[in-house]
Amino acid sequence: MVELELTVNEKTYKLEIEPDERLIDVLRRRLGFTGTKEGCGEGECGACTVILDGRTVNSCLVLGVQAHGRKIITIEGVGDRRRPHPVQRAFVEEGAVQCGYCTPGMVLSAKALLDKNSDPSPQEIGVAMSGNLCRCTGYDKILRAVQRAAREVSGK
């Protein structure tokens, strides 16, 4: 076992983990952030996306120890029912959720994009969201939701 100190959603945790433990398992099993979903487990689908020091990563491809001393945002840290993030509100308003399994990763990818670029072009949105697979929605309403959230964030 190795010691790990990391910040998740602005709260710092100290715990012991196995050296080969994946970040997704640390988040889900040890810390209970089950909003992070495991899809393919090999970095293709994006369901396990979290924001690590401002950048999206597939948490199934990151070792827990690699997150030592770093800041993570999971879907639980983005917003909740009472105070949803503009991206979450836009997803609801556009009807961008069907089965919902990809949604946490989609929301985090969209948030990470808008944090850096509040006025993205449709092409930039497509590129930013292309690492997150969705089988239900055809992406149409997801892309519209990100555009709507961008308009709200940028005040346009």
Binding site: E94, G95, Q98, C134, R135, C136, T137, G138, Y139, D140, K141
Partner: peptide, 14 residues
Amino acid sequence: LTQAEGQIAGGVAQ
């Protein structure tokens, strides 16, 4: 209507 459009878009993507 929203769900119907969503089903169409999902079907098209598949």
